[in-house]
């Protein structure tokens, strides 16, 4: 695989984490209970830390002198490579938890594999660290899925609606593309098809514990990895980037 592809792939990892962190941060001060406010903020913080490490590494690989801040704050929506899933609005608490549940199970699989590869040892080191954190995130979102799904009539109905609404954004996690193909050959990434199956098996098992059904839709949204985003991303970036773009030399 080429250096450009390698750089792009590091942006996938960094952008997924940063955009989801930015979304989760919106809950700060607004979550249904104090413990959840703290939990969602803590998860956001872990994700920001992961994205910083990936951006710093991407910047070094690129070799154009761009640091983590340059990559986070001075790229436009078309340059972002995150999954459409992570930019979806928070909606109600169930929407946020369902989004997190889908992503956490994907992140678990991805980091488990990345921690073991030797194509990029810096990514392996970041993944090893991130895996310890993501295990806690995944336990948290899975517990909530079960609590809400197997809870009251209303919570069951609403979380099922969240699952159905977000389902079309899950296929993109395993979408084949040129880097993925090259990476599979180099054994850097798990085979997309088998990873998707593994993910689906875990999702099915937890949803069944939660008395929820797995949506049967097979049509999937895509475009995030190529910079084709929903309108939501531009608003996220506008809020996230306004300060450094207005005061590019600001120090604090």
């Amino acid at each position: 695989m080429t250096k450009d592809e390698h750089f792009e792939w590091l942006l996938w990892l960094a952008d997924d984490a940063l955009i989801l962190a930015q979304r989760l941060s919106e809950w700060c001060g607004h979550a249904p209970v104090l413990e959840e406010d703290i939990a969602l903020s803590n998860i956001a913080l872990d994700l920001i830390g992961q994205s910083r490490a990936f951006y710093a590494h991407a910047g070094q690989l690129e070799g154009l002198g761009r640091d983590e801040d340059q990559l986070a704050f001075f790229r436009t929506d078309r340059d972002f490579r995150n999954l459409l899933l992570v930019e979806q609005p928070n909606g109600d608490f169930g929407d946020t938890i369902a989004r997190q549940f889908f992503f956490d199970q994907f992140a678990l699989l991805r980091f488990t594999h990345l921690a073991q590869q030797s194509f990029d040892t810096e990514v392996a080191a970041i993944a090893t660290k991130a895996l310890k954190e993501v295990r806690y995130h995944a336990a948290h979102s899975a517990e909530w899925m079960i609590r809400l799904g197997d809870g009251t009539e209303e919570s069951h109905q609403r979380i099922q609606e969240s699952v159905n609404r977000l389902w079309e954004y899950t296929g993109e996690c395993f979408e084949p593309n040129s880097f993925q193909t090259a990476a599979e050959k180099a054994n850097v990434l798990p085979h997309a098809e088998s990873a998707h199956k593994e993910w689906l098996a875990t999702i099915t098992s937890i949803l069944s514990q939660a008395t929820l059904s797995v949506p049967n839709g097979t049509w999937m949204q895509k475009g995030g990895r190529q910079g084709g985003h929903s309108e939501h991303l531009s608003y996220i970036l506008a809020e996230m980037q306004v300060l450094p773009r207005t005061y590019p030399d600001a120090q604090w």
């Binding site: 413990e35 703290i38 939990a39 903020s41 803590n42 998860i43 913080l45 806690y136």
Partner: peptide
Amino acid sequence: LVSAFGSTACKAH
């Protein structure tokens, strides 16, 4: 265990 996420990243409540 009240919450696996506490006052800082490293602590549970």
